[in-house]
Each structure stands twice: as structure tokens, then as C-alpha cells.
């Protein structure tokens, strides 16, 4: 690692320690906001790990969040939470493997709408199941305290960032980028595209599954319409694209912005909040596809071209 790498690492450790101490300093409301922030970071970083790197844009990540929540709810007071929440994550990852097998052959906009359709399909399937079981929502009583949930969510957020960073600099990340650029050429240099895509898709579903489990403990009420809401998928994509979907910093920045925006607007004018998100998504896809972080990076590096200026989409190579 370079000196700069060490410095960055140190800053990150310090930031994590500070964040872990937040429950001591913040009131219930502020801690709730901080929890939301960690949630969006964990979701968006996980999404970027697959969709940002591979170019297969999933508009269905809500399904992993929802499935994780459902598993946690079903196992409530059956199994201990330290077991059931990760099990929710594993279930989400297994579901991703199952869905990815047929779906990851479909490319481009068709993959996007397919993921959305599947997420909606599973939502209605869960609704039907719950109706058949005679359940109209499930109430969870005696869930862990906000502080516990926050610390757990913080851990997931940090984990998701670490996973993205490691994947980016590992063989898997190189394979995903190659697939994003040209899948046929990727196969021709020895990349097993199916295996690479499937494993990355499953990995990117794991953390959202656990996030769903934690969030259902926070809301203490499970209702499938809410837990599987496509708005979650939409927000994840917007957050990641806003910040820049193939760096660790991008989804982090996007989440900060989102939480700020939601604090200003969500309770007072939820529709206006959604309108702003929609406008931002369209504007960034069309005009700033590299995201805020990419744009800033390009701006900073612009004056000094040459070997040191690396294209923002490049594979990161550890020296």
C-alpha cells in the first residue's frame, strides 16, 4: 500500500469509530436519521458492486431487501436475531442465484425492466401468501433498541464499502468491467461471464437482505406492499447514479445527499421529494453519467493529463 493508501485507511477507521460513537451524542430522532443514512449507504454500495461494475442495471433490489425482511419476520422469536438476520441475507443471495440464472442472459433495458417485473411479481406473491395465511401485516414486539440497530447497520455500511473496494481491485471486478464493456470479447479472453455475473449478483443481494431484516426490526411492522416497495429499488439506483456508481465514494455521497433531501422534504412534501429524485435521475443519466464523484475527479485531474491521469472508468490497480 502507498502512503496515501495508509492515510485514507486511517481516515476511514477514524470515521467509522466516530460514527460508532454517534449513539452517545445523538438523540432518538437524529440517530434514526443516521440509521437511514447507513441503510442507504449499505444498499447503494451493494448495488454498485454489481450493477455499477457490470452495467447490468438492477431495478429490482427491493426484492432482496423485502425477502430479507420477510425471513427475519417469519423467524421472529423462532431463531435468535444474530442468526435470522444473516439468514435473511443468505436467502436473498440464494434468490439472486436462482433469478440470475435465467435473467442475466437478458441484456440492456430488457434486464432493467425484467428485474423490476420480477420484484413486483414476488411482492404480489408474498401478498397472496400472507393473505392465504390470514395475515394482514405482522407486528413485532420487543425488537432491539435503536442503538443496537444503528451499530449493526453501521457495520453493514462499512462492510458494503469494503466489499466494493475489494471487488474493484480483485479479479472479479476486472471481469465485471470487461463484461460491461463487451461481453463477447470478455469471454474470448477467458472470462466465464455467467459465473462472474451470477456470483457478483448474489454478493450484491446479500447485504441488502440483511439491511431489510434490520429495517423491519426498526419499523416493527411487516407489510409486504411496504417491504417490497419498488420505490426502494428506484431510490437505490438514483442514489448510486447521483454519486457515481463505480467508486466507493459515489454511493456514499449520493446517500448523504438523499438523506439530507429527505430530511428537508419527506415528511412535509413526499411528492416533491419524489419529483426531485426523478428529475435528478434523468438529469444525471443523461448529462452526468459519471456521477458527482466522477465529475469532481475529472475536474480535479483535468489540468494534468498524461500517465497519471486515469480514466474514471478504469480498473483500479493496486501498486
Amino acid at each position: 500500500m502507498t502512503r496515501q493508501g495508509w492515510q485514507t485507511g486511517l481516515v476511514l477507521v477514524a470515521a467509522t469509530a466516530l460514527a460508532a460513537a454517534l449513539p452517545l451524542a445523538l438523540g432518538t430522532y437524529s440517530l434514526g436519521v443516521a440509521l437511514d443514512l447507513m441503510m442507504w449507504i449499505a444498499l447503494a454500495e451493494s448495488w454498485a458492486m454489481f450493477s455499477g461494475l457490470s452495467g447490468y442495471v438492477s431495478l429490482g433490489h427491493a426484492v432482496f431487501y423485502g425477502v430479507g425482511a420477510y425471513v427475519t419476520v417469519l423467524l421472529w422469536q423462532v431463531l435468535p436475531l444474530w442468526f435470522s438476520v444473516p439468514l435473511g441475507g443468505l436467502t436473498a443471495a440464494a434468490l439472486a442465484l436462482l433469478l440470475g440464472w435465467p435473467c442475466l442472459r437478458v441484456r440492456g433495458p430488457y434486464f432493467v425492466i425484467l428485474t423490476l417485473g420480477i420484484s413486483e411479481f414476488i411482492k404480489y406473491a408474498v401478498i397472496s401468501t400472507e393473505a392465504a395465511l390470514g395475515r394482514n401485516g405482522r407486528l413485532l414486539i420487543g425488537t432491539p433498541s435503536l442503538t443496537v440497530l444503528f451499530e449493526a447497520m453501521l457495520a453493514l455500511a462499512v462492510l458494503s464499502m469494503a466489499v466494493l473496494q475489494i471487488v474493484r481491485s480483485a479479479r472479479l471486478g476486472a471481469g465485471l468491467l470487461a463484461i460491461r464493456e463487451d461481453e463477447v470479447a470478455a469471454e474470448a479472453v477467458g472470462i466465464n461471464a455467467t459465473a462472474v455475473k451470477l456470483s457478483a449478483f448474489a454478493m450484491s443481494a446479500f447485504i441488502p437482505g440483511m439491511v431489510g431484516g434490520l429495517m423491519i426490526l426498526r419499523s416493527t411492522y411487516f407489510e409486504p406492499m411496504q417491504a417490497f416497495s419498488p420505490t426502494t429499488s428506484f431510490t437505490i439506483v438514483t442514489v448510486a447514479i447521483l454519486g457515481g456508481s463505480d467508486t466507493v465514494a459515489g454511493p456514499l455521497l449520493g446517500s448523504l445527499f438523499l438523506v439530507l433531501l429527505s430530511e428537508l422534504l419527506w415528511t412535509r412534501a413526499p411528492e416533491v421529494y419524489m419529483i426531485i429524485l426523478g428529475v435528478l435521475l434523468v438529469a444525471f443519466v443523461l448529462f452526468v453519467p459519471e456521477g458527482l464523484v466522477g465529475r469532481a475527479g475529472r475536474f480535479l485531474r483535468a489540468p494534468k493529463p498524461g500517465p497519471s491521469s486515469r480514466d474514471h472508468r478504469a480498473v483500479v490497480i493496486e501498486p
Binding site: 476486472a174 470487461a178 460491461r180 464493456e181 463487451d182 463477447v184 470478455a186 486515469r310 478504469a314 480498473v315
Partner: peptide, 10 residues
């Protein structure tokens, strides 16, 4: 069919 968006070395 280069990986067009990546650098030459990558």
C-alpha cells in the same frame, strides 16, 4: 472489440 471505456493497459 476493445473494452472501449477502459484504459489500454487495463
Amino acid at each position: 472489440r476493445p473494452f472501449a471505456g477502459l484504459t489500454v493497459i487495463d
